[in-house]
Design a protein around this nucleic acid. Structure first.
Length: 375
RNA sequence: GCUGGGGUAGUUCAGUGGUUAGAAUCACCGGUUGUGGUCCGGUGGACUCGAGUUCGAAUCUCGGCCCCGGCC
């Protein structure tokens, strides 16, 4: 039973809820979205701006930090928080996501994963224990289990194998986490991860197994890629039935406005995704009236703001024409300004979601948002 | 005035006497989700003009026009 999470309001007509997740650094209001700071920095937006936007939690990557700059250096600095100058919360991803990137030449067996260090070309063996040890040293507020999501898994057989492996690894992760007294952050929480692709029974089997392991929270993985995407909401809904009601539920890798809304409706409490920042870099901008692509010629002489309803400083001070010009001329500031707007937009959405849940108005809010957002 | 170089997509370049003239950029349209990046994919668009040689010229020859350099 987790004591770090407390539900503060439960929607009557859906699984949407607000809550407080208490970490060593913060009390995090849920639902919340975490900007991704793989290397201890979010691309094109700095810590002060993020803090001003009330982001109290980022997610970094244990494996990437382990490869570079390395644990010795981060330890000398006093851990990931001090090294990166972020005094709020950090989740750390285990490195499980890197298992699907060809770039790292992953070779997986029951013991763990063998990966190629792209900086040295040396092989690195990451086991569940090793992954937790790295996160213990980094001192993140929430560590994630090492999980296995199959890349090419088209067959149920592949998903069954990876799901069973994920459960076995989860046991090893929690055993190591409990027994290792050498943690930088003694209050570090640990979340398990549900795999199973789009097979509801595998998801439920995995969820059930994790609930028996005393995790502080449970994540659903495997949505950023592959076939599970279209069935995501149903998978979350069906999986939630097998999770403890007062466990925080984290949807990994999801971050578009519409997806956040639908995940919240099905009981999700936190998110992380590169989506808002990457879309900004690629010129796709979130607005209350839908997404726009700022590189389109249509905006060349459009002197209105990105989003008329947005109060961010970019919308208050700059026109689409100006941002179009910066973007088309590859001016660095284009990415900085567009990233700021997208991140602001998502945070604003999250705040409104929380408010609407507290006011028992979530479904109405969602419906109205979607109506305007989808053309 | 003399002389050399050059004119190929909106732009910068490649290339060849022989099916459908390449690329980058550009324009338009997709994509992007536990970060390998200002990324990936699709589509669109051109041989300076005239004459000659040739079965065939965008390519070779001559001339016109235009651009760049050098000399006077």
């Amino acid at each position: 039973m987790s004591s770090c999470f407390k539900i503060t309001h439960q929607s009557k007509n859906s699984l949407a809820r607000t809550g407080i997740l208490t970490t060593a650094h913060n009390k995090l209001e849920t639902p919340f979205y975490m900007p991704v700071a793989t290397k201890g920095a979010v691309k094109n937006i700095n810590h002060i701006q993020l803090q001003d936007l009330d982001f109290n939690c980022l997610i970094s990557n244990a494996f990437i930090n382990y490869l570079r700059p390395g644990l010795d250096l981060i330890s000398k600095a006093g851990g990931l928080h001090k090294f990166s100058g972020w005094n709020n919360s950090y989740f750390t991803d285990s490195g499980g996501f890197q298992l699907i990137l060809d770039h790292f030449n992953p070779v997986i067996n029951d013991e763990g994963v063998s990966l190629k260090n792209p900086f040295t070309s040396k092989k690195e063996m990451i086991t569940p224990e090793k992954s937790i040890e790295i996160q213990n040293i980094l001192g993140s507020d929430v560590a994630m289990c090492l999980d296995h999501q199959p890349v090419f898994g088209k067959d149920r057989k592949d998903y069954l194998e990876s799901t069973i492996r994920t459960i076995e690894w989860a046991k090893r992760c929690i055993d190591f986490h409990k027994s290792n007294s050498n943690k930088l952050n003694s209050k570090q929480l640990l979340f398990g991860i549900v795999q199973g692709g789009n097979h509801i029974d595998l998801r439920q089997m995995c969820a059930l197994a994790l609930t028996k392991l005393d995790f502080d929270g449970v994540a659903l993985g495997g949505f950023g890629i592959g076939e599970a995407q279209k069935d995501m909401y149903n998978i979350i809904y069906q999986t939630k039935k097998y999770l403890l009601i007062d466990n925080p539920t984290y949807i990994m890798g999801i971050g578009s406005p519409i997806e956040i809304l639908n995940c919240v409706e099905n009981g999700a409490d936190c998110f992380d995704s590169v989506y808002p920042m990457r879309m900004a870099r690629h010129g796709l901008i979130f607005t209350a009236n839908g997404e726009i692509k700022i590189d389109r010629g249509a905006y060349k002489e459009d002197f209105s703001p990105l989003d008329k309803e947005c109060d961010c400083f970019v919308c208050k001070n700059h026109s689409r024409a100006y941002l179009h010009h910066l973007y088309k001329t590859h001016e660095q500031n284009a990415h900085v300004l567009l990233t700021y707007h997208n991140v602001y937009f998502v945070q604003n959405l999250i705040k409104n979601i929380r408010l609407s849940i507290k006011e028992d108005n979530f479904l109405k809010f969602k419906k109205e948002f979607e109506k305007k957002y989808k053309k």
